[in-house]
Design a protein around this nucleic acid. Structure first.
Length: 441
RNA sequence: GGAGGGGUGGCAGAGCGGACGAUUGCGAUGGUCUUGAAAACCAUUGGCCGGCAACGGCUCGCGGGUUCGAAUCCCGCCCCCUCCGCCA
């Protein structure tokens, strides 16, 4: 099947991005949403093409109806042994006209799709308007950054001192931005995964899944990674598969092409997976430590919900992610992203930023987004109303709950002691054989 | 990797050039009967697009071709299953 990414950029999704009818009826709102994000989309061209296409469609459908009727009649004539040559000739000519119209419609349709797939989701009205991240707004803060009586070390200094992080060997085995975890470092990584999964499944109502980590193009398209972020992803040489940049992709695609029952909603999933990102174009940033790796672990939260409640669900989802940081005693703040910083598919997004002493600032550790029906359209995920009626697109949400590597970094830095050892947060101890600290040797 | 088989409505499973948007069974929904339920019987029952509606179009894995007409014939692609080989 395939949707032809490699052929000619003809992305033929089933349902199309933003609803054309919606764009037709709310053109100015769409225009504002697009420009608020700092993007440009030829909306006028789109509307013009749409008008032309619908005109052709009317004509086409009328001709097809005549064609169908005529062919039926030929069948009847022939069964009765009567002459049908004249009608056959007429239908032949009609058939040619139809083919010509179809070709024309196809061309216009392709151009429409090319424009449509470049239209991002529209920001929610509560999203601050601004061109970049400096317009993000702090929503709340939790915990106090610790005052150190000594000069705190960075997590890479601590990790190397404790012999639990080995950056050089990571590079040797793979390349830069890969790290080898050892001993209690590896254990802490694993402990955090289990701690987070247990918290979300046992206390927050999520169902644990473990999805494929290589996914096909269609999956990448429906969550919005393709076509825009193609350069960010690792692709297989001989198979049309990509390494996932986040569990959002396979988990949201669990229900791609499905029509759910209203009474099944909301559906909450959480998944631990490794994630892979090429980090193209971020060469100078965060070169040291665990912050920006090509491979990292993450526990992800994904929701499929009724459209009416999706913004409440976003608040709940964000709180679920925050709960992780609170239980680990890590100070953080929550920011609502401005229009210019919002990802392509999201309508609203909260970033959770954890305090990192080595940076002297808050650093993103989770991103919680409401995609409204944007991904559901691209992936054709609907639900059937309980009382009957037309099936409608669900709303999808997801958020990190939370990034594991950055959590390790935050724990090392925030829980360090003057001698270079690190206390283990109480909530994590049961997952680390009761261990209370990590010391050298 | 080699050899076969197959993709049809929620499921099972027919159809193999015209009356087929698709026989039939199951399921589902509504009704009759019943104190209630089951059973039995009757009726309805795929999805999508456009339209207030009447109605029209699309849809038998995907794309192309042949034909007045394709679920049915031809070509290409994708996926699934079985057996053998290999393998954590």
């Amino acid at each position: 099947m395939g949707i032809g990414f490699r052929e000619e950029g003809a992305y033929v999704g089933r349902a199309l991005m933003l609803d054309l009818k919606f764009i037709r009826e709310n053109t100015e709102a769409v225009r504002k949403g697009v420009t608020d994000r700092g993007l440009e989309v030829p909306l006028d061209r789109l509307l013009e093409l749409d008008a032309r296409r619908r005109k052709i469609l009317t004509d086409l459908e009328e001709k097809r109806a005549r064609h169908k009727r005529g062919n039926k009649e030929i069948g009847e004539l022939m069964r009765r042994g009567e002459d049908a040559w004249a009608l056959r000739e007429e239908m032949g000519a009609l058939s040619d006209e139809i083919k010509a119209l179809e070709a024309e419609e196809g061309e216009i349709g392709a151009e429409i799709r090319d424009i449509l797939i470049r239209i991002p989701n529209l920001p929610h009205e509560t999203v601050p308007v601004g061109p970049d991240e400096t317009f993000n707004q702090e929503v709340r803060r939790w915990g106090e950054p610790r005052e150190f009586a000594f000069k705190p070390l960075s997590h890479w200094e601590l990790g190397e001192g404790l012999d639990i992080l080995d950056f050089q060997r990571g590079v040797k085995i793979a390349e830069s931005r890969f790290t080898l975890l050892k001993g209690k470092g590896a254990l802490m990584e694993r402990a955090l995964i289990n701690f987070m999964l247990d918290l979300h499944t046992r206390e927050h109502g999520y169902t644990e899944v473990f999805p494929p980590i290589l996914v096909n193009e269609e999956s990448m398209f429906s969550t919005g990674q393709l076509p825009k972020l193609k350069d960010e992803m690792y692709a297989c040489r001989d198979d049309e598969l990509y390494l996932i940049p986040t569990a959002e992709v396979p988990v949201t695609n669990i229900h791609r092409g499905e029509t759910l029952r209203e009474e099944d909603l909301p559906i909450y999933y959480c998944a631990y997976t490794p994630c892979f990102r090429r980090e193209a174009g971020s060469y100078g940033r965060d070169i040291r430590g665990l912050i920006r790796q090509h491979q990292f672990n993450k526990v992800e939260l994904v929701k499929f919900v009724h459209p009416d409640g999706s913004y409440d669900e976003l608040e709940k989802l964000t709180r679920d992610a925050e709960d992780v940081l609170q239980r680990l005693g890590l100070p953080y703040r929550v920011e609502v992203l401005s229009t210019g910083d919002l990802s392509f598919s999201a309508a609203k997004c909260y970033d959770l930023e954890v305090w990192l002493p080595s940076y002297g600032e808050y650093k993103e550790i989770s991103s919680c987004s409401n995609f409204t029906d944007f991904q559901a359209r691209r992936g054709d995920i609907r639900f059937k109303p309980a009382g009957g009626g037309k099936s409608t697109f669900v709303h999808t949400l997801n958020g990190s709950g939370v990034a594991i590597g950055r959590t390790v970094a935050a724990i090392l830095e925030n829980y360090q002691r003057e001698d270079g050892s690190v206390e283990i947060p109480e909530a994590l101890r049961p997952y680390m054989h009761g261990m209370e600290e990590i010391t050298a040797g």
